[in-house]
């Protein structure tokens, strides 16, 4: 097919008509032998690792390999993906026991075996796909942005710059997957997980937000006390959010202000103001 790219087609002499036959981009010239992957094949009932061999293409990521295998050898291999550019957070899986965005992880960075399996903190549906719907339930349970002010807001860069980091979360749920509170201890009903502490952080720190989520974070399903700040979530976040340092600990400190600090408690009693926070537009 690519031959016709060069073939001129002179129906009229006005312009080079061959431009109407565009090159079809192929992978020729980028093949670098083959590579092997062990991929989990199975469903909720169980399954096994199956080894596949596929072409190694220069610069290939794990997702490329999986999709090649799907197109050529295993049409029913279930996998999630969308953007292929680490923007959407769909392609989370565990590669060699570590949560990884498959579209971001180069194949040639592994020496030896590559084992791909679905995230383990959630029920497996099939192959590389697990059921992450629980996360959306948690999202629903959290008070959304609430304000009595009317946009357009006057907000300054220096007041909001620290919110850009939590806002960049792509909801890959890998932090949820790696968190031992969920993964090992299955505290799903009582614990929102690092992803939602990240969300809680920007909500609580937003200059215009007026809701108070501290009660939720402490007891109402947030369960932030279950987090023992062991930082596995921070280690896996593909967009580099310092989840523990910048989201969880600041929220733990705010919870401490409200529930564990006798001096602050006394002050609130004396001043007769409850729940007001420093500098919040409602706080005064």
């Amino acid at each position: 097919m690519s031959e016709s790219t060069n073939g001129t087609n002179g129906t009229n002499g006005r312009e080079d008509q061959s431009l109407a036959y565009a090159p079809v981009a192929g992978t020729e010239g980028a093949k670098r032998g083959t590579t092997k992957l062990k991929i989990f094949r199975g469903d909720a009932e169980g399954g096994e690792f199956v080894e596949y061999e596929t072409d190694m293409i220069e610069g290939m990521v794990v997702l490329d390999a999986v999709l090649n295998i799907q197109a050529e050898q295993a049409p029913d291999l279930a996998v999630r993906w969308n953007c292929k550019a680490a923007h959407c957070g769909s392609c989370s899986a565990e590669v060699n026991g570590r949560p990884t965005l498959m579209c971001k992880q180069r194949v040639n960075e592994y020496e030896g075996e590559i084992r791909v399996q679905p995230m383990q903190a959630f029920p497996v549906i099939k192959d590389l796909v697990s059921d992450v719907s629980w996360n959306y339930e948690v999202s629903r349970s959290m008070t959304p942005f609430t304000t009595s002010q009317q946009a357009p807001f006057t907000m300054y860069e220096e007041d909001v710059e620290r919110l850009y980091e939590p806002k960049s979360c792509i909801e890959c749920f890998m932090c949820q997957d790696v968190c031992h509170v969920l993964r090992t201890h299955h505290k799903h009903p009582e614990f929102a997980g690092p992803r939602f502490f990240v969300r809680g952080q920007w909500l609580e720190m937003h200059p215009m937000d007026e809701a108070n989520r501290l009660e939720y974070l402490k007891d109402g399903g947030g369960g932030i006390g279950y987090c023992n700040i062991t930082k596995c979530c921070t280690e896996v976040c593909p967009v580099g959010i310092k989840i523990t340092d910048n989201s969880i600990i600041p929220l733990k400190e705010r919870v401490a202000d409200e529930y564990y600090d006798p001096a602050k408690w006394l002050m609130r009693k004396i001043r007769g103001r409850k729940g007001s926070r420093n500098g919040s537009s409602n706080g005064g």
Binding site: P144, A151, F153, T154, L163
Partner: peptide, 19 residues
């Protein structure tokens, strides 16, 4: 767009504090 801001969207700001 202002409605998005009302719902919590955050855009980069000008020095005057606008979008």
């Amino acid at each position: 767009v202002y409605e998005l801001e009302q719902w919590g969207a955050l855009f980069n700001r000008t020095p005057e504090g606008k979008i």
